[in-house]
């Protein structure tokens, strides 16, 4: 089997698992309602303080949140795969001994989840018109960001999967919890400039910080975060590209390490539910 077919099979599986539990209509609602709920929390927070339904700060957090949903939903979904394969469907061992590397299987499933998450993001942008958010799209820059976004999001998914190979299944949604790191440190819903100095330096290590800055420029036409405003667009693109690939490579190495360690410890098909 070639790489294309392997990825296709994994993508198909992800789509089946994500969608075949219900009708297409309910699936569409499901896919959209969660991000809308998250956006409404922010809108309400803005309203109780400012007393209005529109403003620049709202545009900042609304757009950041809409694109964060791609990250959060992909990681949420991928964060369950190892535990599901290991303890729910009991297929992890069979996937491991198949000729398709488990890493490639995870990438395939991430492609589907990432693509599915773009739809609710578009719906959110559309709903943003009701909040009088003025969009000035730069489609080239946006496409560039979405492609690079996939690289580091899959990298993070691999990292989480590696950790999951070594840890127990707990109740919560661990992928989403992991996404919280970026939510706080990457200027998603508030400017990085508000973070303490040491936290700003950490923010610069994450590709997401540059990603969200590029997203704002590509969607709103400006960057209102004073800290990130110091970067030119070519610089942002350069940092995003470099960090995304470095990040992916490191995540891949960590996944391989976790994979080897899990087999060494004999815990690849352990059962940990409690």
């Amino acid at each position: 089997m070639n790489v294309k077919n392997e990825l296709k099979a994994a993508m198909w599986l992800e789509f089946q698992i994500e969608s075949n539990w219900t009708s297409p209509l309910i699936f569409a609602i499901y896919n959209i309602l969660k991000p809308v709920g998250a956006a409404l929390v922010l809108v309400a927070m803005f309203y109780v303080v400012v007393g209005a339904w529109t403003g620049n700060s709202l545009a900042f957090m609304y757009v950041g949140n809409a694109f964060y949903m791609i990250l959060a939903q992909t990681l949420f979904s991928i964060g369950w795969i190892v535990h599901d394969d290991r303890e729910h469907y009991s297929t992890l061992r069979y996937l491991y001994i198949s000729p398709t590397p488990y890493f490639r299987y995870l990438v395939g499933r991430s492609i589907t989840r990432y693509s599915l998450s773009i739809v609710p993001m578009c719906v959110l942008l559309l709903l943003g018109l009701a909040l009088k958010i003025e969009y000035r799209f730069n489609l080239l820059l946006l496409t560039f960001a979405l492609i690079l976004g996939f690289v580091f999001i899959v990298g993070t998914a691999l990292l989480i999967s590696g950790i999951n190979l070594l840890t127990a299944r707990h109740g919560g949604a661990i992928g989403e919890a992991f996404a919280g790191i970026f939510y706080l440190a990457s200027g998603v819903v508030f400017p990085v400039a508000l973070l303490p100095g040491w936290a700003q330096q950490i923010a610069l290590v994450f590709p997401t910080t540059y990603w969200f800055s590029i997203i704002r420029i590509a969607v709103l036409g400006y960057e209102s975060d004073k800290f990130m405003g110091g970067f030119s667009v070519p610089d942002l693109c350069l940092y995003l590209t470099t960090l995304s690939f470095v990040y992916f490579f490191l995540a891949y190495l960590l996944f391989r390490f976790a994979d080897t360690l899990a087999r060494k410890l004999g815990i690849l098909d352990m059962s940990t539910t409690y």
């Binding site: 803005f46 303080v49 957090m61 508030f190 508000l194 973070l195």
Partner: peptide
């Protein structure tokens, strides 16, 4: 923490 910063930003 992020939500606390949201209020601070406002």
């Amino acid at each position: 923490s992020a939500f606390i910063y949201v209020y601070r930003s406002l």
